[in-house]
């Protein structure tokens, strides 16, 4: 697709959203039987699966830390996840995404509870539509909770960007590819930022406003994450309240 002439018409974006509106999001918890925790997430056109294994023994052994658990995060895009086939396997981009995503989640995990062990997180992107690292973090944080891993809080992530000199929340593919800026943000429940990247240009005022927009978007996503986890055991919640 080539660059559209205008991204915003009468305050409405190409896909019909307002400038501060998220794409439709759907969470599903516990989709994989063999994983300790898992989550499937659709965020607009993104489809990702996150699986969490652990805490478990560390292999190779030399990676283990004697006082804390190590967190390993592997972000991978399926070869069919984008329009032109992606050459499978790790590359520069996915290594970077893995690293920043790991660092976005590490501060909330109580790693000191599980010395000499590893917590492995795998994120598979089945279909990509801009903002996959944010989608991956959202899914991974729910999968971590599902695995029963102790955490300070969930982590929610979304991107903010600039198209047609206007700040917009949760970019779609075209806005990402042809826009002026893209800034993924991940925050904890109480607003601590665990990931902040920026591609393109924003003025310092735009940056401040954009950050607030992203935080608001993350707060909305947090509610959806919470609802998804609650839904998994809603039956038991009813059981409890009936007593």
């Amino acid at each position: 697709m080539s660059k559209p002439e205008k991204f915003i018409e009468d305050g409405i974006r190409l896909d019909g959203r307002k400038f501060d509106e998220l794409r439709p999001i759907k969470f599903e918890v516990g989709v994989l039987n063999r994983a300790d925790g898992s989550c499937y997430l659709e965020m607009g056109g993104n489809k990702v699966v996150a699986a969490v294994y652990g805490p478990r023994e560390v292999h190779p052994r030399h990676m283990q830390k004697s006082t804390t658990a190590i967190v390993r995060y592997k972000y991978n895009m399926a070869s069919f996840s984008v329009e032109d086939r992606k050459r499978p396997g790790p590359d520069r981009r996915s290594s970077e995404v893995s690293k920043v995503s790991r660092q976005a989640l590490e501060p909330v995990i109580f790693v000191e509870k599980y010395p000499r062990s590893a917590i492995d997180i795998f994120v598979e992107v089945l279909q990509a539509d801009a903002g996959t690292r944010a989608a991956g973090i959202n899914a991974a944080s729910v999968a971590l909770a599902d695995a029963g891993i102790p955490m300070k809080s969930l982590v929610s992530a979304c991107a903010v960007g600039k198209v047609d000199d206007t700040l917009v929340l949760d970019l779609n593919k075209d806005e990402d590819n042809y826009g002026q800026a893209d800034m993924p943000v991940a925050v904890t429940q109480n607003g601590n930022i665990t990931l902040l990247q920026m591609d393109g240009h924003l003025t310092s005022d735009e940056f401040k406003i954009g950050l607030e927009m992203a935080k608001k978007g993350c707060a909305d996503i947090y509610q959806m994450q919470k609802a998804a986890l609650m839904a998994k055991f809603s039956k038991s919640a009813e059981a409890e309240s009936n007593e």
Binding site: G37, A145, D146, G148, K152
Partner: peptide
């Protein structure tokens, strides 16, 4: 709460996890 589970608040505050190793 540090884990995903059932919280009980009487006497001692604890959360019994719903899953985990």
């Amino acid at each position: 709460a540090a884990v995903y589970g059932l919280a009980s608040l009487k006497n001692q505050i604890r959360v019994v996890p719903l899953s985990g190793k």
